[in-house]
Every structure is written in structure tokens, then in C-alpha cells.
Design a protein around this nucleic acid. Sequence first.
DNA 1: TATTATTGTATCAAATTGATACAATAACAA
DNA 2: TTGTTATTGTATCAATTTGATACAATAATA
Lengths: 238, 238
Amino acid sequence: MLPLEKEHITNIAYDTVIFGFTGDKLKILILEYQNSGLFALPGGFIRRDENLYDAVKRGVRERTGLDKIHLEQFHTFGKKNRDSSYPFKKIAAGKGYPITSDHWVLDRFITVGYYALIDYNQVKPTPDKFSDSIAWHSIDKLPPLMIDHEEIVQKAIEAIRNDLGKKPIGTNLLPKKFTMKELQKVYEIILNKEFRRTTFQRKMLSLDFLKRHEKLYTGAANKAPYLYSFDESKEGKE
Amino acid sequence: MLPLEKEHITNIAYDTVIFGFTGDKLKILILEYQNSGLFALPGGFIRRDENLYDAVKRGVRERTGLDKIHLEQFHTFGKKNRDSSYPFKKIAAGKGYPITSDHWVLDRFITVGYYALIDYNQVKPTPDKFSDSIAWHSIDKLPPLMIDHEEIVQKAIEAIRNDLGKKPIGTNLLPKKFTMKELQKVYEIILNKEFRRTTFQRKMLSLDFLKRHEKLYTGAANKAPYLYSFDESKEGKE
DNA sequence: TATTATTGTATCAAATTGATACAATAACAA
DNA sequence: TTGTTATTGTATCAATTTGATACAATAATA
């Protein structure tokens, strides 16, 4: 069944850009609607008795199984021609749901964009009842997305670029313990800029928010790197 | 008359934090509703056939008379208890408008926050039909604002702090020509941090986006400072 | 024990910023 | 005209940060 009007506030929705880091690439979760061949960001409606933030959190939890995630609002999209009538009609038709042309989900929608940062290896992507699949896609190789979702992704990337260094971006994309090389890769991908290994390491260490742990022996025939974690007693410095 | 439901999209509105620089203080425009003693940010509803951005622009134009203004969206506020039923009932009662308890303007509202930067001296603040007065208030001495408008102001200040150096903040708060001292004051107030005069001047000049003009003779018994303007051929560097 | 591909730091040069000094005014008063 | 005073614009040198390079210290493996 389609979502009920009386339970939700109308004309406003949210969409989430859920980032994960594979150790090599930044990826985001994209879902494909059933019977439509349409790719979209995971999004949803806001219940009348629910804070906007909680609605987004619920949506991310349902799709990833994760509860503690870093969520950050970045932009609200309000062009007058923003509506989902094409995809919703297609979905409804495919499922055999009745839908009238004045149904509230077909109306104009303003959407609030959030980005989420999660540990890629902890996630089990789970499709919702309207989507066939939900899967990771590299940000430099996305399928064509519906409505303005490509613009939303671009704004999300700009936002995380802007927040890197101000908010704990690295912490949330990386596992608890990570190598300096992995941290550098996160910075390079987000800022789209390469760093000199020695300068990067010196700078990060001088900022004094990393805790050094044991070495990581991978079996490679060379010097093993140290593992680091973010020192929570020194937050907000990253 | 109250705004009509059929002309607007429901549950969503905007509020604007309009900044002006007096040469000494950062101020924002606050309006006071008639018959209510309530202070609020200038805001409004979005017409069904209007882009969100255009709605905000229209609102700022109506209140300031200015058309070319720097508008920047910064955050959307979506707590579940956000509504304007108290002020709207008070206004309607004062004006003798009939209003039923299920009127759309009394429902829950999500609001999109924008900040505007304008040249303080170019503005004629103009009250709208629901407000007695609209006036400049220094950001460090605001009256108590309704609902969550104080939080909105705080977020706006954080946003402009964050954007300083990335977006043309100075350009839009200062008149066409200004002295280095005025520019420094803008930076100091926004960042809440003092700068050394000589270092600030050297840094600004080295960034190569200022054009030097004639000197400003004020009658003061000391060396006259140069006037500067932002060099539009070198934008985006500020 | 030699070989190879890293990793962690040291070192020195280059660039940026901090701190201070000082000459060059613009009005006014003597 | 010549001091006087409060700025303003730059120069100067020290301190800090960043860029570039070198090199010793590994971790497997031959």
C-alpha cells in the first residue's frame, strides 16, 4: 500500500546520500524501484509526530541496519517542478495499487538532503517494499538518477568536502582502527587532490587527535604500518 | 486576510536572517507582529507555482526594497513541535480575522533558513501587513524571538562564519568602496576574533582580489586610508 | 643473508605568519 | 611655516608551517 496522507506531512520529504569507503573508492547507496528501471536515492516521508531528523534516521536504519550513524543535513531542494509523479505512477501500476491523479505523493515535493557516513563493512543493504535492490555505486560511476537526485549527490559531495576537517568525517567512514594510508586515501578522494605521503603524515600526527596502536601485519614483504584510531578525548580537531 | 491554502504548499515555509553591517556592528532585521508583542524573523510561505528560492527572494525584496541581494540557504528546521499557532491566533484575533483551529497556517511547519547579505545603507525596511514594525537589531542584543527563531539566527551566524572566505561575504555587506579597516572589522565581527592590522592588510592584498582606488579624506588629523573595491575579474578568492 | 617494497622520520629549503619598527601623511594649533 | 598627534602603509626579521628529498628501519621471501 502507498503511504497514507493522514500519517504524514505533505509536500516535504527527505533524501539521503549514504557514503561508504571501500578502502579505495567512495561509494553511495542507490536503490532501484521495482517495475520502473528507475534509480534513486533512499528517501522517504516524514510522519506527523516525528522530528525531521528522526525520520531520516529511521530511513537509514531500515536500509542499512545501522543505528549509530553520522547524519548531517546539507541542503534543501525546492524547485517548483519537483515531483515524483512519474516514478510513483509506474510503481503503483506495476504493483497493481490504485492511485488517483490527485494523490498526495504525486504533488510537488520539497526535499531535505542529508548525508550519512557509515563503515562500509558493517552494512547489510536492505531493499524496502518499493525497491528491487539497493546497492553500492562508486560516486564516479553512477547510473542516471531520477528527478534531481544527481544534483543532490553533487551537493552532498561538496558538503562533505566542506565539512572535512570540521566534522569527524574520517572517523565515521573508517573502521575503528585504520592505517595512515587509508586515512590519506579518504582525504584524497573527498578533496579530489593528492597529498605527499610524508607531509600528510606529519600534519595528521601534529594535529594530535590520533592514537597509535599496534602494527598491522598483512603478509606483505615490507615494513608494517601502525594502526591508528581517533582519540575521543581530543575530538573536533580533525 | 490570511494567506490562502490553495495558493501555497503546506507544511513548509522559509525564514530569512537579513544581515547588514553598520561599519561597527552586525545587525539583522527583526519584525514585530501587530497586536501580539511577538518578535520574529521575516519569513513567508511558498506559492505552488514558485521556486523556493524565488519565494525567499520575493520576501526579502518586499521587506527591504532590494532586488539584487546575496541569498544563501543554510539549514532546514524540522522539529515536530514547530508551529505558529500561537502567534497566528493572536494576530487573527487582533485583526478580527476569523480562523478555525484546523486552518493550514496553524499546522506543523518545517522552515528553510536563508541568510541575506545587504548593504545596510541602501535599505528602507518596510513592514508587511501583519507586522507593526521591522527594524535592525544588533546580533548581540536581540529581543526574545518566537518559536525557534533564536536557534535559526545562531545557525545563520555559524553559516556565514563558515562561508567567509568561500563566498563573497564582504562584497555584499560593504558598500562598493570601503577601507581596509572596515573590511577587517567585518572579518573580526563574523569570526569573533581580532586580527593584527599589518598582517591582515598584507594577507588581503596578497590574495589579489582587491582593487585600490583614491584615498578617503574624512577630515581626521591623520594619514588618509585608501579605498578598495572587490575586483570582479578575480572573484571567488575572498 | 641479500632483496624488495614500503613506512617512519630527519633534514634543509621555501613560503607563510607573527611581531615590531618606522617613515609618510592629514588636519590642526602655535 | 613648523610642530604635534593619530593613523596608515610597508619593511624587516624571527618563528612557524609546508614542500621536497633523503635515508634508515622493517617484513616477508628467495
